[in-house]
Amino acid sequence: MTQVIVTVMPKQGVLDPQGQAVAGALGQLGFDGVGEVRIGKRIELSIAGDDPAGQARAMCEQLLANALIEDYTVEVGA
């Protein structure tokens, strides 16, 4: 089995109200140096077969990400 990490993020330019709320809260805590905050998700998969990265990309296209509002990256681990 190969470990694959998929990261799904809101597309640049798509409003991320969750990130904005967290940025506001960090400012209230006194973290003045924080610019933009964006929140996405990390999906850890263990995949069998010859082409785990290709499999993961196909999964992103079909289910894990919505291309209209999200971008994804695929990282193959050990």
Partner: peptide, 16 residues
């Protein structure tokens, strides 16, 4: 929308 039968997507309310 997720099925592609309608255009667009639904996102978190801007009110959070």
């Amino acid at each position: 929308c997720e099925a592609g039968l309608l255009p667009g997507a639904l996102r978190r309310n801007s009110t959070l």
